[in-house]
Amino acid sequence: MAQWKVWIMGLVLVVLSGCSPLTVHNESVGSTTILRADGKLQVLFLDVGQGASQLLISPSGKTMLIDAGNNDKEQVMLDYLKQYQITKLDIVIGTHPDADHIGGLDKVIDQTIVDKIYMPKISSNTRTFESLLESISNKKLKVQTAKAGLTLDWDKEVQVEMIAPAAVYDNANNMSAVVKITYGTTTLLLTGDAEAASEKDMIKSGVDLSSTVLGVGHHGSKSSTSLTFLNKVKPQYAIIQSGKDNNYGHPDKTILSRLKKAGASVYRNDLQGTVSVISDGKNVTIATERKEK
């Protein structure tokens, strides 16, 4: 109890309007915590190293998990769900078959109640993908195809639209499920590993891509976040999910420069840990797990 009191006393919320972001860092106990923001929309860009995972909690408490990091992050994912008191996931989305996105989903499904699951119509011959299918089968879940044009039934106050994949691609990254979340006047665009070809087709579809927050595609790789796409999204904030000292050079300096020139404030898992985006339908607040080093 004393630990919670120390944390709460040190917590000051900053509504972002050109101000500094909230950094939740408890020096007294040497640990960091980001609490649930009940009654608001919360999107947690979980720190899963060189991978991706977003946990969404709606104003009414509905839950959604998009991806779950790599195979070695299975216990990390289970710990996150416990931390945020998640025992049921109303929607699970596996954006595409890459291990750094679906590696932890099998254990999540094994040990959590799941209502619906969406995945794009593309398979993989990896053991990671096979393990996920086994977990889905064991729970007697039916995979629904993730594709452009779907509106997901989640929370009556929050609109969830799937805007990609808008075509069929040989490249698994371009088959990534892309989700746009709208709550009041605030919006988030979560892009998986979608690359330039998918971005081009999203633009061609005529869908409104403008978003308050952009989940930057493919961990900040230069294969994604094309200038044309970024000019359509016009994000105020951009979140990059990549791991420390990764072998891919993520995030790419070109993309960081592009985001800066676009006027987006950038947050990164590798530098700041888990990033929490909280919306009351009008304003967005961002909290980071640790101070940037």
Results as ranks from 00 to 15, higher is better:
residue 174 N to C: 04
residue 224 S to L: 12
residue 123 S to Y: 07
residue 168 V to L: 12
residue 82 K to R: 09
residue 218 H to S: 15
residue 179 V to W: 04
residue 241 Q to D: 08
residue 194 A to H: 11
residue 235 P to H: 14
residue 81 L to Q: 00
residue 220 G to V: 07
residue 197 A to K: 11
residue 7 W to D: 13
residue 19 C to R: 12
residue 248 Y to G: 13
residue 235 P to M: 14
residue 36 R to Q: 10
residue 169 Y to P: 10
residue 162 M to C: 06
residue 36 R to V: 04
residue 4 W to H: 13
residue 251 P to H: 09
residue 232 K to V: 03
residue 289 E to G: 00
residue 85 Q to H: 09
residue 249 G to Q: 11
residue 203 I to R: 10
residue 251 P to V: 12
residue 17 S to K: 10
residue 187 T to Y: 06
residue 143 V to Q: 03
residue 79 D to S: 05
residue 268 R to Q: 12
residue 221 S to M: 06
residue 132 L to D: 05
residue 25 H to S: 15
residue 236 Q to D: 14
residue 115 D to Y: 00
residue 189 L to W: 10
residue 258 R to V: 09
residue 126 T to G: 05
residue 108 V to I: 02
residue 232 K to Y: 08
residue 84 Y to C: 05
residue 180 K to E: 02
residue 34 I to G: 00
residue 9 M to N: 14
residue 13 L to G: 09
residue 17 S to C: 00
residue 253 K to L: 12
residue 151 T to L: 10
residue 18 G to A: 07
residue 94 G to Y: 00
residue 253 K to M: 09
residue 110 D to S: 02
residue 49 G to C: 01
residue 80 Y to L: 04
residue 191 T to S: 15
residue 66 I to T: 06
residue 159 Q to V: 14
residue 164 A to P: 09
residue 91 I to K: 01
residue 60 S to Y: 01
residue 186 T to C: 11
residue 118 Y to I: 01
